[in-house]
Structures are given as structure tokens and as C-alpha cells.
């Protein structure tokens, strides 16, 4: 019974995508107004294939992708480490919370991308500024989630640990940290997608390579195929990043599912 439902779902899904592609092809066929502005899916796909072995600017599409990925991973890693530490600190230690929470709340309402200009002034046009933007984009998400996780630790469980002989100074590593893991992953999950969005934006504003640069470069030379190919790559990589995170989460947090 269940399998049958899945089949209709898949068929409907494929149908929807095919219909969408048909509509796209039809509306961009030669002679239409939209056709002058936009290439059809076939052309974009051909272009995408061509990009794998010819350079756009100075690199092939893989080169741009790797550059963007490197930026995301560096910034994301820094944001995760700082966010987890700050979140756990604020959630567990009241003094830490009293001191750092107001500063954090002051900075939090500023949208991450608003830091771009300041980042350029501080770090120049190189990699530093981009790492900084990605860091800012991920950091608040991780912190907030970890913070609420560390706050949500069940006092009964802490009591149980004490009752079983866990000394006070080890409660943190032995109870607070593991019980926050699902929250940490929620934070990381949000952070990875906003980091990916941030790298695209940062590269669009200032860069000489990367996927974000590729689409603005396409815009500058009025090359719609290049823009759309870039968007497809952005979508695929974004999807893969979140899927990988979800996979890791599913493995590490199996215990927290109801």
C-alpha cells in the first residue's frame, strides 16, 4: 500500500518537472519575446557541459565551484567553532550569559550581508573579507540554537548524573554537551545554507572567481546561458551541502528522534 503511494508521487513529480521543462522550452522558442531574453533548457544544459572543460574567466566551472566551496567551508568551520563555544558558554554559565548575551543581541539584528562593506574596509578585497562574511552569516544561527540547547538541558538528567557520582565540574562535558548535540546540528544545518547564500552574495559583490562571480560576470556580458548555468550549479551544490549535513545529523542524533 505504502509503496504504491510512493509510485504515484514519483510519477507526479517527474511529470511536474517535465511539464516545467516543456513550458520553458516552448516559451523560449525562437520568435517569442521571452526567447530573445532567455535561452531554453537544452542550451543551458549544453553550456553547462561545455563549461566543464573550457574556462570562464580564468577557471573551469569546477575551479569556480571549488573556490566557493573552500570559502564556505573555512567560514562555516570558524562560525561553528565560535558559535558552539559561545552558545554553550551562555547557556550553561549565568555569568557568561549576563556578560555576552547583550553584546550578542546588539549585533544579531544586523543582517549578515550588511557587513560586506565593512569587511571590505577591514580585510580588503581578498579572501579575508569573504571568510568574514560567511563567518558572520553562520555564527548567529549556530549560537542561538546551541544556546537554547544548553538552556534546555533537563535538570532531572543533571540530577541523575550527580546521583550516579558525576562530579560537578564534569557535568558540562558529561551531560550538557551531549544533550545539546541535536540543537547544535539544527544550528549547523541552518548555518550551512545561509553560509552558501552568503558566499554567493559576497562573490557577486566583489570577487574575481567563484560561482557568484560567474553569474555577475554573465550579467555584465549579457550572457543569460552563463547566468542560468551558474544558478543551476549553485542550487545543486547547496542541495548537496544540506543533504550531507542532514546525513551526518541522522547518524549522530539517532537517539533523539521520537
Amino acid at each position: 500500500m505504502k509503496k504504491k503511494i510512493d509510485v504515484t508521487r514519483i510519477i507526479m513529480g517527474i511529470l511536474a518537472v517535465v511539464l516545467f521543462l516543456c513550458l520553458w522550452t516552448l516559451s523560449t522558442r525562437e520568435g517569442t519575446t521571452l526567447g530573445k531574453l532567455m535561452p531554453g533548457p537544452g542550451e543551458v544544459f549544453k553550456r553547462l557541459l561545455k563549461m566543464t572543460h573550457t574556462n570562464i574567466g580564468s577557471l573551469t566551472i569546477f575551479g569556480h565551484m571549488l573556490n566557493s566551496l573552500r570559502r564556505v567551508l573555512v567560514g562555516f568551520f570558524l562560525a561553528s567553532v565560535c558559535g558552539i563555544l559561545l552558545g554553550l558558554g551562555m547557556g550553561w554559565n549565568r555569568k557568561c550569559e549576563a556578560i555576552l548575551r547583550p553584546l550578542f543581541e546588539l549585533i544579531r539584528p544586523i543582517p549578515p550581508l550588511a557587513w560586506i562593506s565593512l569587511a571590505i574596509v577591514w580585510f580588503g578585497l581578498g579572501e579575508g573579507g569573504k571568510y568574514f562574511i560567511i563567518f558572520v552569516s553562520g555564527f548567529a544561527n549556530v549560537t542561538i540554537n546551541v544556546y537554547s540547547g544548553a538552556k534546555a538541558v533537563d535538570p532531572e538528567v543533571i540530577g541523575a548524573a550527580r546521583m550516579l557520582g558525576c562530579p560537578k565540574h564534569r557535568i558540562f562535558t558529561s551531560v550538557v554537551l551531549p544533550s545539546s548535540i541535536p540543537y547544535i546540528f539544527t544550528g549547523l544545518q541552518i548555518a550551512i545554507s545561509s553560509s552558501w547564500a552568503a558566499v554567493v552574495a559576497a562573490e557577486m559583490v566583489r570577487s574575481t572567481n567563484g560561482i557568484g562571480w560567474m553569474i555577475t560576470a554573465g550579467q555584465n556580458i549579457n550572457d543569460m546561458e552563463q547566468i542560468l548555468a551558474g544558478i543551476i550549479v549553485i542550487g545543486v551544490v547547496g542541495f548537496l551541502l544540506t543533504t550531507i549535513m542532514r546525513g551526518i545529523e541522522a547518524r549522530l542524533c539517532a537517539w533523539s528522534r521520537v
Binding site: 513529480g13 511536474a16 557568484g212 551558474g230 549553485i234 542550487g235 542541495f239
Partner: peptide, 28 residues
């Protein structure tokens, strides 16, 4: 029916950050 039909299309759109569409929109 909407779920089966629209969700796959939405899933195609979802991983692309909004800002990435700016060049396309500017052309339009």
C-alpha cells in the same frame, strides 16, 4: 495532488538563494 505536483518543483527552487536570481531579474 498539489503536494505531489508542486513539491518537486519547489525542491528545485529551494536550494538557490534568492540573491542569485538578481542577474536574471535585472535582465528582465
Amino acid at each position: 495532488k498539489v503536494d505531489c505536483f508542486v513539491t518537486p518543483l519547489f525542491d528545485l527552487l529551494r536550494p538557490v538563494p534568492g540573491i542569485a536570481w538578481l542577474p536574471v531579474l535585472i535582465v528582465f
